[in-house]
Design a protein around this nucleic acid. Structure first.
Length: 385
DNA sequence: AACTTTGGCAACCGCAAGCTC
DNA sequence: TGAGCTTGCGGTTGCCAAAGT
């Protein structure tokens, strides 16, 4: 690839920006917008490369940047998102309005990472160091499940961020609908800042819940008996008291049902996680095809992708039980005990919990302890912080 | 007061993905 | 289709000021 270096020309200035340079850059962007960054320096009369200008603008000069000390809320958000996303600073930054990824990255490296280390928590794994070292035989599966949790959440957050960006640029009915969906999902995401760990099953299963609920209310599936979430025979998709599905047998979808599922999935949890679901299920992806009936949803690459995916489910009459098994396998959780997880009940041996509960419980307790320490130290001036 | 170490942060570097032609 | 270009991202560096000796 003949990629030309950014600052190949001799004579281009590097290093700290002067107030005069800042003024030139601000004035030019204020009047013309940045346009092509590569062409900007010459037009603005700057002896800088375009990349340097872009960095200066995005990390310092942009008017919507909040500077100064990070609030406790922001710290909590960073720590929790980092546990889920790792060093994906741009994704984390989307949840911290007016903070740049560079600023968050610096703050993590200079403050938060050290704090966690002092607390005996591995800032990479977010586990107590002793646990991280002794993650032995019995927990390997749990660790894998936890990894899946992080991957799912990561994919979802990235999709959210992408959709938010896109929604600012594109305006069509589907995008607007997605934008509102993203906002709703972000509201859910903000609960990450609370000392409660959301079950990784939540969004996916909400999609299923929404799907079945909408399908029955829309008459796509006949409802025998009542309007609640119980499912009629011969299908045996049941919902527990907390409203989460327990698929026990095969359900076949026609194209209309598939479309309804797609729509309700978007409504329930956004496109990103559905896409990730299908990514995790090669059987779906392998059978992708095109269909005019579902192309009405194809306003964006992602919606097209996932509508096609679910058409593939339809065409091959893939048993939903198989899909749900895949969900469970990916998540490592059957969500039978959603309430106890959400309520923070202590898990004990013998409980009917999913395979990932041990790790999830530890995870939850970890967050609580982290946040308690953060809160305590901020109020008492503890040397820990 | 002079020197060294540490902390904080802006900026740079290189890679990769997406876009355009 | 693929080369070249643009942009975004994450890791790293280097400068400067504060703190420590």
């Amino acid at each position: 690839m003949g990629r030309s270096p950014c600052c190949e020309k001799v004579g281009l200035k590097k290093g700290p920006w002067t107030p005069e340079e800042d003024q030139k850059l601000l004035a030019y962007i204020g009047e013309h917008g940045h346009g092509s960054w590569r062409a900007l320096p010459a037009k603005a009369g700057l002896q800088r490369c375009g990349k340097s200008c872009r960095l200066r603008w995005t990390n310092y000069l942009r008017p919507d940047i909040k500077r100064g000390k990070f609030s406790l809320q922001e710290e909590q958000t960073i720590i929790q998102l980092h546990a889920l996303l790792g060093n994906r600073w741009s994704a984390i930054a989307t949840h911290l309005p007016k903070r740049t990824d560079n600023e968050i990255k610096n703050y993590w490296n200079t403050h938060l990472k050290k704090r966690l280390t002092k607390m005996g928590i591995d800032p990479v794994t977010h586990k107590p160091k002793s646990n991280a070292l002794s993650s032995g035989s019995g927990h390997s599966k749990d660790s894998a499940n936890l990894s899946h949790m992080a991957q799912w959440e990561s994919a979802r957050l990235e999709a959210e961020a992408r959709l938010v960006r896109e929604s600012k640029l594109v305006s069509n009915p589907i995008q607007q609908q997605l934008s509102s969906t993203v906002l709703a999902v972000q509201n859910i995401s903000t609960t990450l800042a609370q000392p409660v760990v959301l079950s990784p099953c939540l969004d996916v299963l909400k999609a299923w819940q929404g799907f079945w609920s909408n399908s029955t209310s829309a008459g796509i599936f006949p409802v025998a008996g009542n309007d609640d979430l119980e499912f009629p025979t011969p299908t045996t998709l049941n919902f527990s008291e907390n409203g989460f599905p327990d698929i026990q047998s095969t359900v076949e979808l026609n194209e209309n049902q598939t479309l309804e599922f797609a729509k309700s999935s978007v409504t329930a949890c956004g496109v990103g996680i559905i896409k990730e679901v299908c990514t995790q299920m090669p059987a779906l992806k392998e059978r992708l095809d095109h269909t005019t009936a579902l192309q009405e949803m194809s306003y964006s690459t992602e919606s097209a992708w996932f509508s096609e995916s679910y058409r593939a489910v339809n065409e091959n009459i893939m048993p939903l039980s198989n899909i749900m098994d895949d969900f469970k396998g990916i998540l490592g959780c059957n969500c039978d005990d959603q309430n106890s997880l959400m309520a923070g009940d202590k898990l004990e041996n013998g409980d009917k919990n999913c395979s990932g509960d041990f790790e999830e419980s530890n995870y939850k307790h970890y967050w609580n302890s982290v946040l308690n320490l953060v809160n305590a130290s901020s109020s008492s001036g503890s040397p820990v912080f």
